[in-house]
Design a protein around this nucleic acid. Structure first.
Lengths: 350, 350
DNA sequence: AGGGCAGATGTAAGCGCTTACACGTTTCTC
DNA sequence: GAGAAACGTGTAAGCGCTTACATCTGCCCT
C-alpha cells in the first residue's frame, strides 16, 4: 500500500498521536491515506485535487501540525525564495528605514529576507559567501560593506544590486541623488550671507559623501568662490564633540557648517550651544538624512531627506526581477532627494 | 571513472571554461579529479584529506567559482542553520538595537538570521508558518506580534522564545525589568515634590507597559497616595501632540508626566515648550528607553535605559541552545534596567 | 457498446549535498 | 618482514520535497 520507502514507521496504522516533531510529507500522506504527490499538490495549490481529498490532507496537516522542510522544497525547485541584504549596521534611522522597505517589498514578492550586518564581522568575505549559500540574490549597501573582489565573485553566480555604493562594472545599483541637492543646500546657506562655510565629513569615506562634497564645491564655484578644505572626520557621533571643540578653540574658522549627516550636525550643534554659542546666530549648521532628532532640536536642523524606504523597495524589486529571469538594468538608478529647511541654517523658521 | 550519475556533461573532459552559473559539487569533483565525498570533506573541514588533494579541490572551487547550494546541505544535515526573528517594525532605536544584538550573536554561532516584520502583513499566521519553514528556531518580540495560537502551533515544532512579551505556558521568554524601575522613576518624580503625576500610555497595550504602569501605581501607594487614571494613548509620535494639546487646554491636570516611552515624552515635551510652557518648571516629563534624542533635547529627558542589545543576544543564544538539543529554560529571564536622570524630571542637571 | 478524454491520483526520478561504510595504501610495531 | 593500525579516498544511501509521466476511473459521444 504505502510507498516502499524508509520513511514511516509502517508498523502501527497511523496512531492518532499528538503533533510529532518532524512530521514529513510522508507521515501526512500516510495519515490522509493518499500519496505524497497529492499532499504536495494540495499544499502548493498546483494540479487538480478533489475537494474531499484536499480536506483529508488538510486535516492530516492540522493534526500532525506539519511544517514543511523549506530546504527540501528549495532543493527540489532550485530556489531559496530568499533575498540577502548586507548592511554595515543598524544605528540611526537610515538603515532601518531601508531594511523596512526591503523587507516589505520582498515579503510581497513572497521572498524572505536574510540579513547580514558587516560591522564586527572578522571574516567578511566568508560571511558573504556563507550568505550567498542560502539566498537567491543579494543586495549590499555601500561598496565598503563588500570588497569588490567578493562582489565580483558573487556576481555571475547570484544577482547582486548595490545600494548607495560606488557602481561597479556590470553590477546593478540604486542610490539617492546627492550632488545636486548638496549644491542646493550649500547655495541656500551662502544665500544667507555666510562666507566661511566648512564641510564636515570625509569625502573619501563613502561615495555618497564624495558626491555631497562635490555639490558643496560646485555651489561655491558657481559664485566664483573657493571652498575651504573639508574637515575630515568619520561619521560617529563622538566625532562631533571633537569638531565642536576645535571650533570653540578657534582652530576651525567658520560661520557655517555643512555636515555629512545629521548625527554629526546634531552633536556639533548641541555642543556649540552648550558652550554658549548661538546657532544659527554665530554659526549655522546643516546636516543630511532628516533623522527624527532633527525635528526636535531647537533650532530645527536644516537637512536633506532621502527616499530611503524607496531605495529598499527598489532593491528588493530588482533582485526579484533578476531571479525571475529578468535582464539586469545596468544604468544606475538615481532617486531624487529633498532639501528640508528648518531653523539651523539661519532661516527665521521656528 | 566518474560516478555514474545524471550530472556532468561527461562528454568533453572538463573544459577550462569560465565560472558557470550552477557549478555543483559534481562539477568541482570532476574538475579536481576526485569524488564528491572528498570535495565535501575539504569544504566542511571534516575527515582527513591530503594536502595535495585539498589544494586540487580548492583550485577547482576557485576556478568554477563554486557556491554550494545551502538547501542541499540543509536537507542532508537537517538543519537550516538559520534563526528567525519576528519584530513588529523597525522605527526607533529599540528594535534595531535588539536586532543588532541578535544578529551578532547568531552570526558568532554560525547561524544566519531571517527577519520578518509583522506590520503591514495581511496574513500574519501564514507569514509565520512560511518563516518556520526556513529556520530552525524563532524569536518573537512581543506577544502581539504572534497570535497565541500561532505560537502554540510553532511551539513543539520549532524552538520559540518570546522577547519582551507576555510569557506563555511552556515557552521560553526574556525581557527587561519594568515594574521596579518604573516605581523608582516615579518615586524620584514624587520626591521632587510633584503631586499630580499622570501616566501617559496604554497599560493594556503591551505587557511592558502594563508593568511600568504597575510600578507607577506602586510608587504612589508606597506613599499612601492614589494615582490618577492613566491617559491611554498608543505609542506613535503623533499621539504626543494630541496629549500636549489636552494639557494646554487644561483637560489634563498634571505637574508631571510619566510617559510609556521616549517618543511620546519627547513629542509632548517639545510641544509644551513650543507653547511656552516651562519643562520641568511648570511640568516635569519623563520617558522610557533612552533614545538618542533624549540626550539632545533641552532639558535632557530623564528616562530608563534597557539592555536591549543584550536582550537580542540572549534570545539568539537561547535559540541556539535549543537547536543544539538543550532543554528549554522555562523560568522567564529578566534583565535589569537603569534609571537615567537628566533634567526633565526637575533635577538641576544641565 | 466502445473509444476517447478529462480528471484524479499514484509512481518514481531527481534536486545537490553529507556521511557511514568499504576499500586500498602506507606506515608502524615487534 | 608480516600483520596491525592508520590514513586517504571512493561508493552509495539517504535527507524531504516537486513534478513529469503513467495509471485508473468515470463519463460523454457517436
Amino acid at each position: 500500500m504505502a510507498t516502499a520507502r524508509k520513511h514511516g514507521g509502517g508498523s502501527s496504522p497511523a496512531p492518532v498521536q499528538a503533533a510529532s516533531v518532524g512530521a514529513t510529507i510522508y507521515s501526512v500522506a500516510e495519515r490522509a491515506g493518499v500519496s505524497i504527490a497529492t499532499v504536495s499538490r494540495v499544499l502548493q495549490g498546483a494540479g487538480t485535487v478533489s475537494a474531499k481529498t484536499t480536506q483529508k490532507v488538510l486535516d492530516a496537516v492540522e493534526e500532525l501540525n506539519y511544517v514543511p522542510l523549506g530546504a527540501a522544497r528549495s532543493l527540489a525547485v532550485r530556489h531559496h525564495e530568499a533575498h540577502g541584504l548586507v548592511l554595515p549596521e543598524l544605528t540611526g534611522p537610515y538603515y532601518s528605514e531601508l531594511l523596512m522597505g526591503f523587507e516589505s517589498r520582498a515579503a510581497e514578492l513572497g521572498q524572505s529576507v536574510t540579513l547580514m550586518l558587516t560591522d564586527g564581522k572578522a571574516d567578511l568575505a566568508r560571511a558573504v559567501r556563507q550568505l550567498a549559500t542560502h539566498v537567491d540574490a543579494i543586495a549590499v549597501l555601500g561598496s565598503a560593506a563588500m570588497p569588490p573582489a567578493v562582489a565580483r565573485a558573487l556576481h555571475g553566480q547570484k544577482p547582486v544590486v548595490i545600494i548607495a555604493g560606488a557602481p561597479q562594472e556590470g553590477i546593478e545599483s540604486v542610490r539617492a541623488e546627492n550632488a545636486h541637492s548638496a549644491e542646493q543646500l550649500t547655495e541656500h546657506v551662502l544665500a544667507h550671507g555666510r562666507t566661511r562655510l566648512v564641510f564636515v565629513g570625509d569625502p573619501e569615506g563613502a561615495p555618497d559623501i564624495t558626491e555631497r562634497h562635490a555639490g558643496f564645491v560646485a555651489a561655491h564655484r558657481a559664485r566664483g568662490l573657493e571652498p575651504a578644505p573639508p574637515v575630515r572626520v568619520p561619521f560617529r557621533e563622538g566625532e562631533g564633540e571633537a569638531v565642536a571643540e576645535r571650533i570653540l578653540a578657534g582652530e576651525i574658522d567658520a560661520d557655517a557648517l555643512v555636515c555629512a549627516n545629521d548625527e554629526l550636525a546634531l552633536a556639533i550643534m548641541t555642543h556649540l550651544q552648550d558652550a554658549g554659542r548661538d546657532v544659527p546666530g554665530d554659526i549655522a549648521v546643516v546636516g543630511w538624512d532628516d533623522v527624527m532628532t532633527s525635528r526636535y532640536v531647537r533650532p530645527g536642523l536644516t537637512t536633506v531627506r532621502q527616499p530611503v524606504h524607496e531605495l529598499g523597495v527598489i532593491a528588493a524589486e530588482r533582485l526579484h526581477q533578476r531571479v525571475s529571469g529578468g535582464q539586469p538594468v545596468l544604468e544606475p538608478q538615481i532617486l531624487p532627494t529633498q532639501v528640508v529647511i528648518r531653523g539651523s541654517c539661519g532661516c527665521g523658521h521656528r
